[in-house]
Simulated scan of single mutants.
Amino acid sequence: MQIFHIATAADWAEARRTGAYTTSTRGVTLDQEGFIHAARREQVRPVWERYYADAAEPLVLLTVDTDELTSRWQEDAVGDDTYPHVYGPINTSAVVRAQPLDRRGSTGSFTSVFVQEMGVRAGLAIAAMMLAGLGAAIGGRTPSAWGEFVGGVVGLLIGLGLIGLVLRRRR
């Protein structure tokens, strides 16, 4: 059987380094909670919406093969439903897939997430260059020999400031 766990990319990277995943849920360790929260496939989206939609860090969806787990797991009642819980570390060899989650909680390939992010950043870089050109054009109308240069630098700084604001807001 396969169960699923939403993890931060940093927690998953640490687990790959050590061989064991020990984060129960966002900001809570296995030692603190006593088990690792997991979900069936149909529960992943509601869990993401409830607990991870505002996450500022990159997330991954771990697909865990329960037959490969070295720790005990079971379905436990939670309200009117049941959820799988893993009562010990998740050995990384039991994770058969790690997929990035986008800002809408959907899985995609690392390539598609990378291409999308690079498209946003390229668009922002083009906008910064256009502002630098506009600044140079405006500065070129001044009688100073440095007008174009100063205008270009000012335009570029404004563009870079806008890039910083946009990227910070996207987190």
Rank of each mutant, 00 (worst) to 15 (best):
M1A: 14
Q2E: 13
Q2W: 10
Q2G: 00
I3C: 12
I3Y: 08
F4V: 06
F4D: 06
H5K: 13
A9G: 00
A9E: 14
A10Y: 00
D11C: 12
W12D: 04
E14Q: 14
G19M: 12
G19I: 10
A20H: 12
T23W: 09
T23Y: 01
T23C: 09
T25F: 11
T25V: 10
T25M: 10
T25L: 08
R26G: 07
G27V: 05
V28G: 02
E33K: 10
G34V: 03
G34C: 05
F35S: 14
H37Y: 12
H37R: 13
A38M: 04
A39R: 06
A39I: 01
P46Y: 10
P46T: 07
V47E: 15
Y51R: 13
Y51I: 06
Y51H: 14
Y52Q: 01
D54V: 02
D54A: 15
A56R: 15
A56Q: 14
E57N: 03
P58Q: 14
L59S: 08
V60H: 08
V60E: 13
L61C: 08
L62H: 02
T63Y: 05
V64C: 08
T66L: 07
D67V: 08
L69S: 09
L69A: 10
S71A: 15
S71L: 02
S71G: 02
S71D: 05
E75H: 13
E75G: 04
A77N: 01
A77C: 07
G79F: 11
D81C: 02
T82R: 15
Y83V: 15
P84S: 05
P84V: 03
G88S: 09
G88F: 05
P89T: 08
A94E: 08
V96T: 15
R97A: 15
R97H: 09
Q99V: 09
D102V: 05
D102I: 06
R103M: 08
R104A: 14
G105P: 01
G105D: 07
S106D: 14
G108K: 05
F110E: 15
T111H: 12
V113F: 11
V115S: 11
E117G: 08
E117A: 14
E117T: 11
R121T: 01
A122Q: 12
A127R: 08
A128W: 03
M130K: 10
M130H: 05
G133Q: 02
L134A: 13
L134D: 02
G135H: 00
A136G: 07
I138D: 00
G139L: 02
G140K: 03
G140L: 04
G140R: 01
A145W: 08
W146S: 12
G147M: 07
G147W: 00
E148K: 13
E148I: 05
F149M: 13
F149H: 06
G152R: 00
G152Y: 02
V153A: 09
V154F: 06
L156H: 04
L156R: 03
I158Y: 04
G159K: 03
L162N: 03
I163G: 00
I163S: 04
I163E: 09
I163D: 03
I163Y: 01
G164A: 10
G164L: 04
L165T: 12
V166Q: 10
V166C: 00
V166A: 09
L167M: 14
L167K: 12
R168G: 06
R171C: 01
